[in-house]
Design a protein around this nucleic acid. Structure first.
Lengths: 135, 135
DNA sequence: CCTTTTAGTTGGTAATGCCCACTACTTTAG
DNA sequence: CTAAAGTAGTGGGCATTACCAACTAAAAGG
């Protein structure tokens, strides 16, 4: 009998639940999940295209189009690097910043129900365990 | 100051990490994440199209194409319901079943590193906490 | 019956994300 | 210093994803 690993199974299930909620928040603002991620990443970074691609786990060419569309909406802007004439730095516009802030709040609100019946101690425990997974 | 909720933040991060690993497994078999999900769902179910759509959180029309492509690869098959001439039941072919089994194993293998420095007690604790989120 | 609801498919559209080829700039060698 | 090799980003071509709206076929209700 193939004993399914319950922890991993739950982890996958929870991850899908999280993604569903994130997608919903994104969709409410006419954004894809990836665009949401981009805004999240740019909230405290100003990476080159290639770095952004690495963060997202995507091909550089995919990020080109992604940034194109975000720029067309006035959410991000490209600035040429002065130290390297090839690279481009991507950053949030003021508009992008305020949207990102709003999205952060909405994401928290959307995810909170997942922990609705968690006390402070359990939340803390979970936070620590999840944190160790990111190490 | 916007105090970021660390638990939720970690949860989102971990979820993205899980998705990345799942996508990798899927891609290694020329499947999308959604196709992987379909195979997972069909492993212990034989739903109608509409039920499958609900499970995936997708539009019925999206599932039509999804099943089309999976069927073209010989992984799933459609059978007309006899009790309802409109509905269609989707099920795994033998080929789909063996692929699904293989994928299950690979998914476990791909996700395991996330818990590499977890002892049995921590794994159990995490499993319980995650399980409560799914209730 | 005849109308309304339901199941599924089809067509049209936009976005995603890959690979490959290309340009432009940098770096390294010779 | 110049030629070759490498790196950054873009663009085209492609299949897939997923939406909506319109459609066909079957079922249910009046």
């Amino acid at each position: 009998m193939t004993e399914p690993d319950e922890v991993l199974d739950n982890l996958a299930q929870v991850s899908f639940a999280v993604m569903a909620r994130l997608s919903q928040v994104a969709a409410a603002h006419e954004l894809s999940l990836t665009q949401l991620r981009v805004l999240g990443i740019l909230r405290d970074r100003t990476p080159k295209m290639a770095e952004l691609a690495t963060h997202l786990g995507l091909d550089r060419s995919s990020v080109s189009g992604l940034v194109d569309r975000a720029a067309r909406r006035g959410l991000v802007s490209r600035e040429a690097s002065r130290d390297d004439g090839r690279s481009v730095r991507v950053s949030l516009t003021p508009e992008g910043h305020s949207l990102a802030a709003e999205l952060t709040a909405e994401v928290s609100r959307a995810m909170a129900p997942l922990l609705s019946d968690f006390g402070a101690a359990d939340r803390a425990r979970l936070g620590v365990l999840l944190g160790r997974m990111l190490a």
